[in-house]
């Protein structure tokens, strides 16, 4: 399943992450998953939210660089080797994974968020 991910550029200054979360809270945007990639200079916050467009708009108004990116949400069986199978599938199709992070784990199923080189192709691969 392809979904819109909201990502935000965060300067490495104290309180910046909190500010982003505050904006989302005030806009009643619910966060389902989050990953923070950071370097010594800045951070990239990636979010799966229920209302990405509204989130982006409000963040822009608050002075944050943000963007919407198509990412793949993949359900994987919650057992050993589940994730490895997924990666094998994409590797076989010559699709490269740019980044990924966990979404939810419920009962015996888990989901991951993936950004891959050819999203449509990857999506097809998982349907097979």
């Amino acid at each position: 399943m392809i979904e819109k991910q909201l990502s935000v550029f965060i300067e490495n200054r104290t309180g910046r992450l909190g500010e982003v979360l505050q904006v989302l809270k005030d806009s009643e945007v619910n966060i389902q998953s989050l990953s923070l990639a950071d370097t010594t200079e800045y951070g990239l916050l990636r979010l799966i939210v229920d209302k990405p467009e509204i989130g982006k708009e409000r963040l822009a108004a608050a002075g944050f660089s943000s963007m919407l990116t198509d990412v793949l949400i993949v359900r994987i069986p919650h057992n050993p080797g589940g994730l490895q199978n997924i990666l094998k599938t994409v590797a076989e199709k010559n699709i490269s994974v740019e980044y990924m992070y966990g979404l939810t784990i419920t009962g015996d199923e888990a989901s991951v968020v993936m950004k891959t080189s050819d999203l449509a192709k990857a999506c097809e691969a998982f349907k097979e």
Binding site: A37, L44, R46, A60, S65, S66, M67, T69, Y99, K115
Partner: peptide, 8 residues
């Protein structure tokens, strides 16, 4: 903002 990327 238009050139913002979500990749490090």
């Amino acid at each position: 903002s238009e050139f913002y990327t979500d990749e490090i």
